[in-house]
């Protein structure tokens, strides 16, 4: 990696997709949720949200089911798509990649989105209100060869035209 400066990237994502990822994280809490947003190969445009089942069904681990993983990739290959965003939630810790996340990250071109439901869940447990306004952390990273770089996130009203 010598010589190549790390350039901060920006994840541009539309509001509806952003909201759907947050809703997925809340719905699956206290387990971690996971999924991807596919987009045309090389476009860096997250367009098609695919919610995946967490086959691990765990509050501290996620894994796509192996048969569903193959189906997903075959769909993307058929559509000339790639995973632009790979997302999952942390349900009791901050929205920062864990050592496990970093060690297993295998899409060097993807934006790894982490959502944390911890503050929302605390507020819900205190007030009984699942629609509370506690902040949901939503952060994005590139993870390449074990190196994590946080990215800016730009949430746009609708997907920008190609």
């Amino acid at each position: 990696m010598a010589g190549a400066p790390t350039l901060a990237c920006v994840l541009t994502i539309d509001q509806a997709t952003y909201d759907a990822i947050v809703a997925h994280a809340k719905r699956d809490h206290p387990d971690e949720c996971c999924g991807i947003v596919a987009g045309p190969e090389g476009s860096d445009r997250p367009e098609r949200l695919v919610e995946m089942v967490n086959a691990a069904g765990s509050p501290t681990f996620y894994e796509f089911d192996s048969a569903e993983l193959l189906d997903l990739y075959k769909q993307m290959w058929a559509n000339d798509e790639e995973p632009v965003v790979v997302y999952h939630s942390h349900t009791a810790t901050e929205a920062y990649p864990s050592r496990t996340d970093i060690g297993l990250a295998s899409e060097p071109n993807a934006h790894y989105v982490l959502v944390s439901t911890r503050h929302w869940a605390e507020a819900r447990d205190e007030t009984g209100d699942g629609n509370n306004d506690a902040p949901i952390e939503f952060r994005s990273y590139s993870i390449v060869d074990g190196e994590v770089t946080e990215e800016e996130i730009s949430v746009v009203p609708a997907r920008p035209a190609p």
Partner: peptide, 12 residues
């Protein structure tokens, strides 16, 4: 034959 890395991780 298809090779695919698992998509996995987690907070622990």
């Amino acid at each position: 034959v298809v090779v695919l890395p698992a998509v996995a991780g987690g907070s622990n």
